[in-house]
Nucleic acid binder design. Structure first.
Length: 152
DNA sequence: GCCAACGTTGGC
DNA sequence: GCCAACGTTGGC
């Protein structure tokens, strides 16, 4: 069992959208960064827990959690020329990009904002603060517990 | 909307 | 395999 943080732009897909389809899962597609891809493909397992992070919006921060219901499988969007996530260099026999399915778990009463995370000494180790552009990233159990302490 | 950070591409 | 140019992310 591992912990992760997934970023999303709420204008595109928010935790409310994820909650709205519950108990159905959402296909977490469109990851086109190799480091994020490697985490998706190699390290994420069923029942891993996920922090949902809203970026590029008014209230930036961690807004809730989800659970992985389906580990990595090939993201078919890469082969679809009409799709925004089409990748001309992807090959059917050697896919480049993967996705996972996640299911809504909870929305926090209060968003744990990026500002709060920056101010919390126990969360200074978060990759979020070091590697701004990684949209799938591991979270340690310690960090997870500190975050849960804040929001419950 | 600006721009810093940084990942990716491609010429050499 | 280096590195400059380019493109994208994401906070402000």
């Amino acid at each position: 069992m591992a912990y992760w943080l997934f970023k999303t732009e709420p204008d595109h897909f928010s935790i409310d959208d994820l909650a709205a389809i519950y108990p159905k899962s959402e296909r977490w597609n469109g990851i086109r960064n190799y480091q994020a891809r490697n985490f998706l493909r190699d390290d994420i397992s069923k029942n891993d827990e996920v922090l949902i992070y809203h970026s590029q919006c008014k209230k930036i921060g961690i807004v809730g959690t989800a659970i992985v219901t389906q580990p990595a499988y090939v993201d078919q969007d890469q082969f679809d020329i009409a799709n925004d996530y089409y990748d001309a260099k992807a090959n059917l026999n050697k896919p480049r990009w993967y996705c996972v399915d996640i299911q809504f778990k909870q929305i926090f009463k209060q968003t744990l904002t990026l500002q709060q995370i920056k101010q919390e000494p126990k969360l200074q180790s978060m990759i979020l603060l070091k590697q701004g552009r990684l949209s799938i990233q591991p979270v340690t159990q310690k960090e997870w517990q500190v975050i849960m302490h804040y929001v419950t």
